[in-house]
Design a protein around this nucleic acid. Structure first.
Length: 499
RNA sequence: GGCGUCGUGGCCAAGUGGCUAAGGCAGCGGAUUGCAAAUCCGCCAUCGUGGGUUCGACUCCCACCGACGCCUCCA
C-alpha cells in the first residue's frame, strides 16, 4: 500500500518510505508537566497515536517515543516558569482540581512534575494513547537524560556548532549550520528582523548571532539544577528531544517526527540543528508531520477567553454539563483531519457520542450472533482496503469514517467476519475495548446505576397500570439523568449515554 | 512584511478532468409508537467570484475576494 504524508520539511505530500523495511521509528513531542494537559495538547498527541496505529494496521512494526518534559525551562527573559507553575498549583488546589495533599509542597518543582506526569499518563491511558498504556519505557523523562544532554552539548562544541559565551552560557551557533531555517522557511536575515523584542539586549550582545539558542545555562539559583562542565545549571529546552529521540530510538536518523504546528519554529528547527550538527547526517527525521491547532466553539483556546479545557474537565462534565466518556473525547479529537484547525464544540461531542454508541451496539449485536468466533481478515477485504487506503492518503480520517459508516449500515449476515472487520477498524480508532481504556460498552450498559434502575422499574409498573402520565414523567427524569429510554411492547430498557 | 493552509448542501466533511458530487449531524415525508425515543424506508448540493486551458472542469492554470494558521512561551 502506498502511504502519503504531508511533510513540513518540503511542504508537500510525499510517499512514505521507511528507512528499514517494515520498521518505523517515530518521535512525538510530549507535554510539559507543569499543569494538566488540555484538549488541544491531546488533539496533537492523539494525531500521533492515530498515525502510529494506522502504520501498524498497514503492517509496520512501529517504535513510537514521546518525551515528558519535566525540566522547568526558563527562556532568556527572566520570567520563571517554575514560579508560574507553583502559582498555578496553588490556584488548582483552591479550585479543587488538584486534591488536597496531592502536592505537599507547591514550591517543589519535582513534586509538581511528578504529580502532573501521573495525571497526564492517567488521561492519556483513558484516551487510548498506546504508548502510555503499553510502552511506558518509550516515554522518557527529560530529567533522566541530563547526562546525555551534556554529552551532546560537548560534542556540538567539539564539532564547532556550539560555543561558550562571555558569561559562561553555552549557545548553539546557527551560522555553523547552513540548513538552519529549512524546516520553518525562515532565513537568518529574516530572523534578525524578528528578534530583539523579548530577549534582553545584554544576552543578544554576547551571542554571535541573534538567533543562537541556549544549550546550557549555568545558574546556581535555579531550583532544578545539575552539575556540568559549564557549571551548575540547567539545559536549554530544545536539547532534550534530540537526546531522547536518539537514546530511545537508537538511530541518528529517524523516520517520522510529529508535534503541534507551533513547534516547527523554533523547537523543531533547533532539534534538527542539534541532531544533525551532532551526527553529521543531513536529516534528523525524514518526515516532519505537524498537527494544526484546536479551536473551541470557533475561538482559539485561551485562558482569558474562559474556553480553556483540560481533558479531565471534559470527562467530568465541566464543559458540557454532563460527564463525557473518554472514548467519546478520543473520537471527537481524532475525527478531523490533522492539518485542519479542528473546531471543538458541544455539538461535535454529542455527534461523536452517537457514533461511538452506534459502534458499540453493532459490536454487541455481532458478538451475540457470532458464537464467540472471529474470522480472519486482512486488508485485502474490500471494506478494509477502502478504509486503509483513505488513511494511507495523508491520514484522511473523514474518508475512512465515510467507509466505516457505509459499512455499519450494510448487511452483517456473517457476524464473525464483521466482528473481524470491526476489530481491525477499532485497532486504529481505539474507541471501544482496547485493553487500555475503559470499555464504553460497560458504562453504556443496559442496567445503569441503581437510581436509573429504580426509575425504570417504576416506569414499567406505571405502564402496566396504563398510567401514561406517570410514565412520561419518569421518562423525562431518566432522560434528564442522562439515559436513552426505549419503550418496548412489554418492557422498558434504558441506556446510559456516553456524553 | 515573510512562510503556509483553505473556500463543496443548514452545520461538519470526503472526492473526481466526463457515469447518479461519499459519509455524519440536523431537517422533511412515511412505517412503527398511547405519545415519544430508537430503528427501518424515502427525500434533501452543481462545488467563493471572474477569466483561461480543454471536445468537456467542481477537479488544471491565472487573477480577485474571503477565511485561517505560524513567524514569540505555547500541542
Amino acid at each position: 500500500m502506498k502511504i502519503n504524508f504531508y511533510n513540513s520539511l518540503t511542504n508537500q505530500q510525499e510517499e512514505f518510505q521507511s528507512i528499514q523495511d517494515g520498521i518505523v521509528k517515530m518521535y512525538s513531542c510530549g507535554p510539559t508537566v507543569y499543569d494538566f494537559a488540555h484538549i488541544g495538547n491531546f488533539r496533537s498527541f492523539l494525531f500521533g497515536d492515530l498515525m502510529r496505529r494506522f502504520l501498524e494496521l498497514a503492517g509496520y512494526d512501529v517504535q513510537h517515543v514521546m518525551n515528558i518534559t519535566d525540566v522547568g525551562h526558563m527562556v532568556e527573559g527572566e520570567d520563571d516558569k517554575m514560579l508560574a507553575a507553583a502559582t498555578r498549583v496553588k490556584e488548582n488546589k483552591k479550585s479543587g482540581r488538584v486534591p488536597e495533599g496531592a502536592i505537599a509542597d507547591p514550591d517543589d518543582p519535582y513534586q509538581i512534575a511528578d504529580y502532573y506526569t501521573k495525571a497526564f499518563l492517567d488521561d492519556a491511558n483513558k484516551l487510548g494513547y498506546k504508548v502510555a498504556a503499553e510502552y511506558p519505557d518509550s516515554m522518557p523523562r527529560a530529567t533522566d537524560h541530563i547526562d546525555g544532554m551534556i554529552k551532546m552539548i560537548e560534542r556540538l562544541i567539539e564539532r564547532g556548532h556550539a560555543y561558550v559565551s562571555s558569561d559562561g552560557v553555552v549557545y548553539y551557533s546557527v551560522e555553523s549550520f547552513p540548513e538552519y531555517g529549512k524546516l520553518s522557511g525562515n532565513s537568518l536575515d529574516k530572523l534578525i528582523d524578528g528578534a530583539g523584542q523579548r530577549v534582553s539586549a545584554d544576552n543578544q550582545q554576547r551571542k554571535k548571532h541573534p538567533a543562537d539558542f541556549l544549550l546550557w545555562k549555568p545558574d546556581r539559583q535555579h531550583i532544578m539544577k545539575w552539575d556540568s562542565p559549564w557549571g551548575v545549571g540547567y539545559p536549554g529546552w530544545h536539547i532534550e528531544c534530540s537526546v531522547m529521540a536518539n537514546a530511545k530510538l537508537g538511530r541518528d536518523v529517524i523516520d517520522i517526527h510529529t508535534g503541534g504546528e507551533d513547534l516547527i519554529f523554533p523547537h523543531h528547527e533547533c532539534e534538527i540543528a542539534q541532531s544533525c550538527g551532532c551526527s553529521g547526517e543531513s536529516q534528523f527525521a525524514n518526515y516532519w508531520v505537524h498537527a494544526r491547532f484546536l479551536f473551541v466553539e470557533g475561538k482559539k483556546m485561551s485562558k482569558s477567553r474562559g474556553n480553556f479545557f483540560t481533558a479531565r474537565d471534559v470527562f467530568e462534565g465541566k464543559v458540557t454539563g454532563k460527564p463525557v466518556h473518554p472514548a467519546v473525547l478520543r473520537f471527537e479529537l481524532i475525527k478531523s483531519h490533522y492539518r485542519s484547525n479542528m473546531n471543538f464544540t458541544k455539538k461535535g461531542l454529542s455527534d461523536s457520542a452517537s457514533t461511538v454508541m452506534k459502534l458499540i451496539e453493532l459490536r454487541q449485536d455481532l458478538e451475540s450472533r457470532s458464537d464467540g468466533k472471529v474470522a480472519e481478515v486482512d486488508l485485502g477485504h474490500p471494506v478494509l482496503k477502502d478504509f486503509a487506503e483513505a488513511l494511507a492518503d495523508d491520514l484522511n480520517i473523514a474518508g475512512a469514517l465515510g467507509v466505516m459508516h457505509t459499512w455499519i449500515k450494510s448487511d452483517h449476515g456473517d457476524a464473525a467476519l464483521s466482528l473481524a472487520i470491526w476489530d481491525k477498524m477499532n485497532s486504529v480508532l481505539a474507541i471501544a475495548p482496547t485493553g487500555t481504556n475503559d470499555d464504553p460498552a460497560e458504562s453504556a450498559g443496559s442496567g445503569g446505576d441503581d437510581e436509573g434502575e429504580a426509575l425504570r422499574l417504576e416506569m414499567v409498573a406505571a405502564r402496566e397500570n396504563k398510567d401514561y402520565a406517570r410514565s412520561d414523567e419518569l421518562r423525562d427524569k431518566l432522560i434528564a439523568a442522562g439515559y436513552d429510554v426505549q419503550i418496548g411492547k412489554t418492557d422498558v430498557t434504558i441506556k446510559k449515554k456516553l456524553a
